[in-house]
Every structure is written in structure tokens, then in C-alpha cells.
């Protein structure tokens, strides 16, 4: 998760620095800011104790992707390669641990988690996470999941896999207009809606059991008509 460190403190834009509190709140670590020593939930970016309690850090759009994919997306990228590795959480190799992960979409009681193993079977899920109609997609080659709004203007689209000669194609097709879309950039590349872009929604890969601790009322998606409630 990536957050902005800029918040308003006493009416002034302030840049905070964070340290690690060493405390777990519902299985998510707590961090503190060095200015006020307020305690923040690092998963949600919300200050829960101290003078800044109630302040929310801006969530910034970030990606969780394989290294080989990221460097092709951003050939000039810098990488944190010389720091310590491992620790108690071990090495994360997505395709070996897909059953532990899901893509979290939305916030609060409406939040939903889309398990990676289900996404790998379906590749494309058309669903609703209020207030949005969403399409959730996964790239099975790079284990990268994304969520977009299915609305373009007033029109709600329904997506299906785009049959292509090349396996692992990034293309999806909306049945509504027949437009072909790039499933990762959300851009329409051919058809009536060419040039339009789907609105990406904040979505973050989570470990399923950690997600359930924070989103007690959230829904783990199991299919179009069945949901797993807590």
C-alpha cells in the first residue's frame, strides 16, 4: 500500500515521517508519525490514536506486479534492490501463493475480496461494489489483478474474454458495444468506444485472513450468486 505523507495539521500542509510502532491492530501493523506520535493503521492509512486520530492519509494508486512485468511497464524504473530481504514474512512469489491472496476492492462494509484462485479460473468477473459496477481482471501470466468501473458515461458495459490467437492476450471485449479493451490500462483500443478509458478503482492485493480481520463485514466473492459472509 502506498500513501501520501502530506496531511493538514492545524490548517497547514505538513509532510509527516513515519516510524514503526511494533503494535498489531487486527493483524495489521501500526505506524507512528514523528511529529505527533499519533498511531496509524498502515493498511488503511487512518490515524486511530493521538492528536491526529481521525485523519486519513491519501491512498495513492500503486501496483503489485511481478518484477519482470513492472520493468517492461517502466523501463527507467528505480528499484530498492540493495536493502535487507526476507524477514519473518519470507519471500513473496505470487504464483506459488495464489490461494492465500485476493484483490480487495472498495472500502467499508461494501468492500469485496476477489480470491486469486477464483480469478484465475474466470479471468474476468463482472460485479457490483457499491457505488460502482466493476470488472475485475487478472493476468494469469504475471499474476496481476486489476479492477475498473464498468460505466462509460451512462452506459454500463458487460465484459467477456476476447478470443485471440495469442494466449494470455491482454484484451477483453464488452458485449454491450463490441469494443476491444486493454484489460490492464483500461483503454479502448478498437471498436465504437475507441479512445475511451475505464476508470480504475482502488484495489489492493491482501492476504485473505488479514483482510477478514479488517473488513469484518466485507464479502469474499465466490461467484455471481453466492457470497461468503463472516
Amino acid at each position: 500500500m502506498v500513501h501520501s505523507r502530506q496531511v493538514e495539521v492545524d490548517g497547514k500542509q505538513t509532510t509527516l515521517d513515519f516510524g514503526h510502532e511494533g503494535v498489531l491492530y487486527r493483524q495489521s501493523f501500526v505506524i507512528y508519525d514523528t511529529l505527533t506520535n499519533s498511531k496509524w493503521n498502515h493498511s488503511t492509512g487512518l490515524a486511530m490514536a493521538g492528536t491526529l486520530a481521525g485523519t486519513q492519509l491519501k491512498i495513492l494508486p500503486s501496483w503489485v506486479v511481478r518484477w519482470e512485468k513492472w520493468k517492461t511497464m517502466h523501463p527507467e524504473t528505480k528499484v530498492l534492490a540493495r536493502a535487507g530481504r526476507g524477514g519473518f514474512m519470507g519471500t513473496y512469489v505470487a504464483d506459488e501463493q495464489s490461494s492465500s491472496f485476493g484483490l480487495s476492492v472498495g472500502q467499508g462494509p461494501q468492500a469485496k475480496l476477489y480470491p486469486y484462485d477464483l480469478l484465475l479460473k474466470k479471468e474476468i468477473v463482472n460485479d457490483v461494489v457499491p457505488p460502482h459496477s466493476v470488472v475485475v481482471v487478472i493476468d494469469p501470466v504475471h499474476m496481476q489483478a486489476m479492477a475498473f468501473s464498468r460505466k462509460i458515461g451512462d452506459q454500463e458495459l458487460l465484459f467477456v474474454s476476447a478470443k485471440a490467437k495469442t494466449p494470455g492476450t491482454p484484451l477483453i471485449r464488452d458485449k454491450t458495444t463490441g469494443t476491444l479493451w486493454d484489460r490492464f490500462s483500461g483503454q479502448a483500443i478498437d471498436g465504437p468506444l475507441r479512445g475511451k478509458s475505464l476508470l480504475p478503482l482502488v484495489s489492493v492485493p491482501w492476504l485473505r485472513d488479514r483482510w477478514r480481520q479488517i473488513y469484518k463485514e466485507g464479502i469474499i466473492y465466490e461467484g455471481p450468486s453466492t457470497v461468503q459472509r463472516p
Binding site: V64, W67, R85, G86, V93
Partner: peptide
């Protein structure tokens, strides 16, 4: 340093891109 299939947290803003391998994040946390 990073295996091709390792996950990284990628962030890009204002023409600058950075990757933080999750294995590194597990060590430093923040």
C-alpha cells in the same frame, strides 16, 4: 537481486517510477 516472478510494489508519479520488492518490504516493513 530480484527474481523475475517476485512481486514488487510499483509506484509511478510525475515521470518517476520505483519498485519496492515485497520480500524487501517484509524485512523493513515501512
Amino acid at each position: 537481486a530480484v527474481r523475475p516472478n517476485e512481486w514488487v510494489i510499483g509506484f509511478a508519479f510525475n515521470g518517476e517510477a520505483r519498485a519496492y520488492p515485497i520480500t524487501v518490504m517484509g524485512f523493513h516493513e515501512l
